[in-house]
Design a protein around this nucleic acid. Structure first.
Lengths: 353, 353
DNA sequence: ATTAGCACTCGAGATGCTCAAGTGCTAACT
DNA sequence: AGTTAGCACTTGAGCATCTCGAGTGCTAAT
């Protein structure tokens, strides 16, 4: 990203990696003496001091104050994630837990994401998040009216995206089974497959005309359709295990905690970060790499969830920048691909037996 | 509750009320001198000191340490809520905000509760909560199969409680419209109105028999029915505005905060408190009045939401025991009765126009 | 019964001290 | 030229100490 970034000597890389690793484990600034002990570089603390000073100049390390050790900067974490990361091997237990989810083969995307979010939080010990994006323009492809009794019916709406919505109507007057059927026919004739902005007054008038004395049904039904459609294209952000963050010293400051909480409750920023993701693989947004300044000191790791090339959501983890990256990245990767597999295998759901 | 509780002198009541009021506003222990100034009792701080000492002996007040003022004990708050509370008059704005909700006339209980929870939190500046109780034993009163195309259909399930569930099935083999219709008939014949524990193997075998070569549909459909039913009788706890609590000094301790968060995430305890409520009106559970010890220093104010005598949920607020009771109680009352009104007026929903 | 007065208690906050960790720099060494 | 030992320096954490103010309880006078 910078001119100074031409190449890092092998020793610098080893030291940088050691600093990040140590800081991830210990949570405190790491000093030269400690490094000299744990690294296999046979050189003295003084040498390491020199190297660290240079790494700081290059922007990879920071010093909280003069007499403390060094901690990685965002750039340092970035380099670590991009170049220094070792593969993490999931333990049997971890694989088991993920498989448990996969085997459950839950029915709806919602449910899967919910469980996956919990799992993400549980396995990584950070906060799990899941996102369902705003739907593209949705319309209702088919209406169905189920006649319950002379004073109530259920309106079933099948959307173009495959989601089904229902609404029960209770009436202050009587209605016949044939009239309910007529309502369904008229709805299908007039406004099936129309996006909300093309449901115009003339259409509504026509519907009222065709429904005769049941014209009074039109208004509430249309209102309900609008509601359902606008519901559907709202994005959704699910958060699980926020309290896990409370155990990390970086969030022992109430204000930071509060900011982060606001970030999650307000949703917009997270949506932006996730929808701005470039990579098809696991994305890592470290600290202030996003424009969201509240994110400083925090990192978001996530991966898109796709169903046959269509992005249907994302799943990830939010935690301190001092995060066990290799573990978390592997975990999210596994989880996301697992979900994708379930989704794309849905076709075969019943062909097996 | 105790022998000493025969009766409090008027002056004691005034002092107790003044202590609670002051502590609610200031958030700190209140001393005798301060009280002597603000109360209209023309008596000196020494007298007040004597009275306070007695109130402490009776259990209504507490002293954090010798040289601090007094704070109300749980019992003190309880007496305040039961006997000393003045009516709070909602401001125009507050009434407007509530009316806005009422006018929205949202379609589903879920949506109403969601909005109401947000509103509760917003208006009171504490954490809003809503509860949907575990449903009584639910069964599915009617099945409907909507044929989509030769490889998919939607199963619509109407439950005895009026809730509708749907599930889309995608098949690995072809199916005819008549076969789908048959599935619906068979389901209605065999297992409609049966609680889950009475769906027995013989019934399933019978269904498979009647469905002929589509017998392979039975297994996934039954599985889906089980899932839907067990989903439905899960209680639900909705929480909004937890971060508002972060502004109160009683929650500046990370551990307390964390305990409270766990309480909300784990749900069971809250369910118990709410389902153990005696009063039909607004309930106030102060601090350790419940058996849940995490609740010490916190108070839950809530009211049941009913639809024609059937309890369909509850809405309330969680905050520090030092809570603006008169305001909060009025607020929750207004909100809950408002929701009840919407629910019971649903009948007339369409008879108007 | 009330109240003025006073001795007493206790925590919050300020101050100053030591200590350990860690640095940067210089000079010596390979 | 790169490495290292050594040393002076910096700084925050932790701790003891002190003061100050708020508030109490008690006693004696009203």
């Amino acid at each position: 990203m910078n001119i100074g970034e031409i190449e890092l000597s092998d020793r610098k890389k080893i030291i940088l990696k050691a600093v990040v690793d140590a800081h991830i484990n210990i949570g405190e600034p790491v000093g030269s003496k400690y490094l000299a002990e744990i690294t296999r570089l046979s050189c003295s603390s003084a040498t390491i001091r020199n190297e660290m000073a240079e790494l700081e100049e290059l922007g990879y390390l920071e010093q909280p104050h003069t007499s403390a050790g060094r901690i990685p900067s965002d750039l340092g974490y970035r380099f670590y994630v991009d170049s220094l990361l070792q593969n993490y091997n999931l333990t049997e237990q971890e694989i088991d837990k993920i498989n448990l989810l996969l085997r459950a083969k839950l029915s709806e995307l919602d449910k899967i994401l919910q469980l996956a979010t919990k799992l993400a939080s549980l396995l990584t010990n950070y906060t799990g998040i899941a996102v369902k994006p705003k739907a593209a323009i949705v319309s209702i492809s088919r209406f169905e009216v189920l006649y319950l009794d002379r004073r109530s019916f259920v309106l079933v709406m099948l959307t173009t995206t495959g989601i089904v919505r229902t609404k029960t109507f209770r009436l202050g007057f009587d209605i016949q089974q044939e009239e309910a059927a007529l309502l369904s026919t008229v709805l299908n004739d007039c406004i099936a497959n129309l996006p909300p902005d093309r449901i115009t007054l003339p259409l509504i008038v026509e519907m009222e005309h065709r429904l005769g004395h049941n014209r009074r049904l039109v208004d509430p039904v249309i209102k309900c359709i609008y509601e359902s459609l606008s519901d559907l294209d709202e994005g959704e952000l699910r958060v699980e295990g926020f309290n896990r963050l409370l155990q990390y010293p970086e969030y022992s400051d109430i204000n930071r905690l509060r900011d982060l909480f606001d970030l999650l409750e307000q949703k917009e920023d997270i949506f932006n970060i996730i929808s701005g993701a470039k990579r098809d693989n696991v994305n890592v947004c470290i600290g202030s790499e996003s424009d969201v300044d509240i994110m400083s000191n925090s990192t978001l790791v996530f991966k898109m969830v796709k169903n046959k090339e269509r992005v249907v959501g994302a799943i990830g983890v939010l935690g301190p920048s001092r995060m066990d990256y290799s573990r978390v990245i592997t975990m999210i990767d596994q989880l996301a691909t697992g979900i994708c597999d379930i989704l794309s295998s849905e076709d075969v759901l019943m062909s097996g037996q």
